[in-house]
Design a protein around this nucleic acid. Sequence first.
RNA 1: GUGGGUGUAGCUCAACGGCAGAGCACCGGCCUGUGGCGCCGGUGGUUGCGGGUUCGAUUCCCGUCAUCCACCCCA
Length: 415
Amino acid sequence: MIAAIRGTHDILPGDVEKWQYVERVARESCERYGYVEIRTPIIEREELFAKGTGESTDIVQKEMYAFTDKGGERVTLRPEATPSMVRAYIAHNLEHAMPAAKLYAMGPMFRYERPQKGRYRQFHQLDVEVFGMENPAVDAEVIDLAWTLVTQLGIAQAELVINSVGCPACRPVFQAALLAALGDNLGRLCGDCQRRSATNPLRIYDCKVPADQPIIDGLPHSVDYLCEPCATHFVGVKTHLDAIGIAWRQSHRLVRGLDYYVRTTFEVLGQALGAQNALLGGGRYDGLVKQLGGGDRAGIGFAAGLERLVLALPESAPVAPPAPAFVVAIGDEGRAAAWLLVRELRQAGLAAQMELEAKGVRAQMKRADRLATRVTLIVGGDELARGEVTLRDMATGEQRAIARESVVTAVRDLL
RNA sequence: GUGGGUGUAGCUCAACGGCAGAGCACCGGCCUGUGGCGCCGGUGGUUGCGGGUUCGAUUCCCGUCAUCCACCCCA
């Protein structure tokens, strides 16, 4: 047997219904908020992510499925969607066609990581992006959509965490303050933190090493170093969230790992997901469009992990597809008539099934029961002679004869 | 990339050097034109894979692959 690639998974019947449900709710939520779908390739030039996601990120440094194709091009399976979205936005001049673009996408992403619960090498994201809008109300609307999606899915005990990491004007001041406060303690931090202090000092806040925590607790917070425009923006975001009654917790430790984030960052955390507890995460990335060769356009968005949403889905989620009608055939003539009846129901837009292998009535009834069907139609010699079909309500066990012509209407009423 | 746990029937798990089992699921019978409940029966396994130790390995050892947990990172 040839095994699947590590960290990839088949999604089988029984689970796939949960996926369809999550995807359906995601689509409906996005479209209610005025987002339109866009589909971009899952393979891109490597430099798109080097420039977009950021040279200093772990994603680019060690997690990309990158290779040289037969034409000598350096390409990679996308590790995230945002740079592709930005590329498409610029390439098709949507800056002019849709100056204020609200886009969403869904699909697989690839990162070469060690798999664990909620973390896979091929995983799937819902990606939501807004281009060209800077108002803090936009941040709040994006967060609103993210939060609404989670609550619509019935995921309980989720928590919204927000922060502001400043902008190119004020972040250097904060980083300098951070390093100054660290001072001699730098040498006492773990190796990872010492590395972070050189590449991306904010990431020190991601550290979970117990010994480091007393030192980290004493460090300054980014929100205390925001420039006036960033501070005003952040207050605006929180005011808008309060106005629509979405509860948030501010955390100075929410710094996020991608290079392009400015100002607002946010995550929704879930329970029972193990260490990978972020259901979704995102933030503002105002400089990214320009950096990738477009105009000076604002940007904000988030990505939600579909695997994680599926994992967090409550038992009660209405994921099951509607049960079909089932036609039970008796004898050869019954089978011929049932064959036509099933097709007629299907043509009328109703889900209908029958047992195509010749089997006894009991076995057919059992099959109908296993399908959880609400209504069974029985066609045998008796019925055929009278031009009727026997209709059985599977919940009550009641049966009645109905005219052959009115079957579609009768079934529609019961389903 | 690092450390640890676990791989036995479709699923959940027993057996832990001596004939590979149970429950659930699936198929059939009791009931030859009627599902669920019950009773009876049946199908289903190179014990993840490869090597080693042993008269004999599902069991002990090594390797490998997968998975889970944590680190790391993030969705």
